[in-house]
Amino acid sequence: MTSSLQAALDPSAIAVIGASENPDKIGGRPLLYLSMFGFRGEVWPVNPKRDEVQGRRTVPRLSALSRAPDLAIIAVPGEAAVAALDECGEVGVKVAIMMASGFGETADPAAQAAERAMVARARARGVRMIGPNSQGLANFGTGAVPSFSSMFLEVPPQDGPVGIVSQSGAMSVVPYGLLRGRGIGVRHTHATGNDADVTVCELAAAVAADPALKLLLLYLESIPDPHHLAEAAAIARDRGLPIVALKSGRTAAGQAAAQSHTGALANEDRLVDAFLERHGIWRADDTTDLVAAAELYLKGWRPGGRRMVAISNSGATCVMAADAASAAGLDLTP
Score class of each variant (00 low, 15 high):
1 M>N: 08
2 T>E: 15
6 Q>S: 14
13 A>W: 10
16 V>K: 06
17 I>S: 02
21 E>Y: 02
22 N>D: 14
24 D>L: 09
33 Y>S: 03
41 G>Y: 02
42 E>H: 13
43 V>I: 13
44 W>K: 10
49 K>E: 11
57 R>P: 07
57 R>S: 06
58 T>R: 05
64 A>S: 15
72 A>D: 13
78 G>K: 14
88 C>S: 10
91 V>E: 06
98 M>H: 02
98 M>D: 14
101 S>D: 10
106 T>E: 05
117 A>S: 14
119 V>P: 05
119 V>N: 04
119 V>S: 03
122 A>K: 12
127 V>M: 11
143 G>H: 07
148 F>V: 02
148 F>S: 05
148 F>P: 11
149 S>N: 09
149 S>H: 07
154 E>P: 00
155 V>D: 04
157 P>I: 13
158 Q>E: 13
161 P>S: 09
164 I>E: 02
164 I>H: 01
166 S>H: 04
167 Q>M: 04
169 G>P: 11
169 G>C: 05
170 A>L: 13
179 L>T: 09
180 R>G: 08
184 I>N: 06
185 G>V: 08
189 T>M: 01
192 T>H: 02
192 T>E: 01
193 G>Q: 06
193 G>L: 02
193 G>R: 00
196 A>W: 02
196 A>T: 01
204 A>Y: 10
206 A>E: 15
213 L>I: 02
214 K>H: 08
214 K>L: 01
218 L>D: 00
218 L>T: 00
219 Y>C: 00
228 H>M: 09
229 L>M: 06
234 A>V: 06
234 A>S: 15
238 D>T: 05
243 I>E: 02
245 A>E: 05
259 Q>H: 06
261 H>V: 00
266 A>G: 14
278 R>T: 15
280 G>W: 15
281 I>A: 08
283 R>H: 05
286 D>A: 13
295 E>M: 02
300 G>K: 01
300 G>A: 01
302 R>W: 01
304 G>A: 12
309 V>F: 08
310 A>L: 13
313 N>Y: 06
316 A>E: 09
324 A>L: 12
329 G>F: 12
331 D>T: 11
334 P>C: 13
